[in-house]
Amino acid sequence: MASSKQTVLPFLPSSAGFTARIHPVVLFNICDCYVRRPDQAERVIGTLLGSVSPDGTVEIRNTYAVPHSEPGDQVAIDVDYHHNMYASHQKVNPKEVIVGWFSTGLGVSGRSALIHEFYSREVTNPVHLTVDTGFTDGEASIKAYISINLSLGDRQLAAQFQEIPLDFRMVEAEQVGFDILKTTMVDKLPNDLEGMEASMERLLALIDDVYKYVDGVVEGNVAPDNNNGRLISDALSSIPKMSPAVFDKVFNDKIQDNLALVYLSSLTRTQLSIAEKLNTAAQIL
């Protein structure tokens, strides 16, 4: 296990100076990976990406799942997949580096120590993030840990996971989306067409509210507000000026691009599923 210094008993190790900040997209990615996990898999694990500030604050901005299996007391990680995913991510976001790993479930276990040892070889002092997707205590418990070695003289006795402070970091747009999702319960996730339809209905409702407000101000039924006026002016000025024909062409082109992406992603998932089944069959034979 990686550690910044040796700790001698009977003094307890300290995690002072270590804090973590997490963006909402990380939690959504982890939940999505858990929903799409392979059959019979109890939990999913993956790599955390972000940055580390000089004061020891770890900012977690992104993540990806890593295939693994846990037969008995052992753990097998697809190291090649992990390295390939990280290399691909570096081409897109070179400033985001490995800062730790995540797992679903409540708390840590003995097998978590084995996985943490692997990530300790990837980065110094990795952060271990746990997300209780099973809502064991009636809520999604989210905690962050670091591992500290317990030593007696030059002899290492054990490794201890110690919890560190964890804060949520959200920009204004993320906060709005997070609040909506937090208070919304649906029977099933909407598909792309249903999501677009709901967004357009919401946009039309907002436009209708603006029309009513402006008409009320003009007729003298509503007291004018300079701040609202500036916001409406900024919104109107941000709309690109184009003819209806050009708008229709741009909109239709965007729809075609989205449909092409959906088709390609569906084709990729099918190919991966076929490759996984062939690989499983080859191992059986």
Rank of each mutant, 00 (worst) to 15 (best):
V250D: 11
I255T: 02
P71M: 05
L264I: 10
H23T: 13
A140R: 14
H116T: 02
T280L: 11
G17D: 01
F11I: 02
G134D: 14
V35T: 09
G216T: 01
E139D: 14
K241L: 11
I30V: 15
S266I: 02
A198M: 11
A87Y: 08
L189S: 00
D208W: 01
F178A: 06
R155M: 06
H82V: 09
M185T: 08
K143S: 03
F247C: 10
G100D: 00
L27D: 07
T184H: 05
F178Y: 12
A158C: 06
W101E: 04
N228Y: 07
G229A: 07
I239T: 03
E42F: 05
D137T: 08
F251L: 11
I115W: 01
L152Y: 14
V99I: 12
Y64T: 10
L267V: 11
L166I: 05
N125I: 13
D208T: 12
Q283N: 03
T270F: 09
L48W: 01
M170D: 07
F118Q: 10
A205F: 01
E174G: 00
G229Q: 06
N227F: 03
N149L: 12
G110Y: 03
P10H: 00
E219Y: 03
K5D: 00
G107R: 01
F18H: 06
M85A: 09
Q74V: 14
R21P: 02
V123Y: 04
V97H: 13
I115E: 05
D78P: 05
G216F: 00
T280K: 13
E197K: 15
M242D: 05
E117F: 07
N258D: 10
N29V: 07
D179I: 15
V79G: 04
Y263A: 14
F161W: 04
P38V: 04
L12D: 04
Y86I: 14
S4H: 11
D39Y: 15
A20P: 02
P126S: 03
D32Q: 13
V210T: 15
P224H: 01
Q175M: 10
E59G: 11
F251T: 06
T47E: 01
G50Y: 00
Y64S: 13
V127Y: 00
A260Y: 03
E42W: 02
E163W: 00
L206F: 08
A140N: 12
P24V: 12
R202C: 10
M170C: 09
G134T: 11
D154K: 12
I255V: 08
D209S: 12
L204K: 08
V217L: 03
V8E: 12
R269S: 08
T136G: 04
M185I: 08
A275H: 06
A275K: 13
R43M: 08
V25K: 08
A144V: 00
V123N: 04
I30Q: 00
V222T: 10
L150Y: 02
D80S: 09
E276S: 14
A159D: 02
F28R: 13
T270G: 07
N84T: 09
H82P: 01
S14H: 03
V186P: 02
V171D: 15
V92F: 05
I180Q: 05
K241H: 10
M185C: 08
V8Q: 15
K277Q: 06
F247P: 06
I207S: 04
V25Q: 14
D234V: 06
K95M: 13
V79D: 08
I274G: 00
K182P: 07
G138I: 04
P54F: 07
F168S: 14
E117H: 15
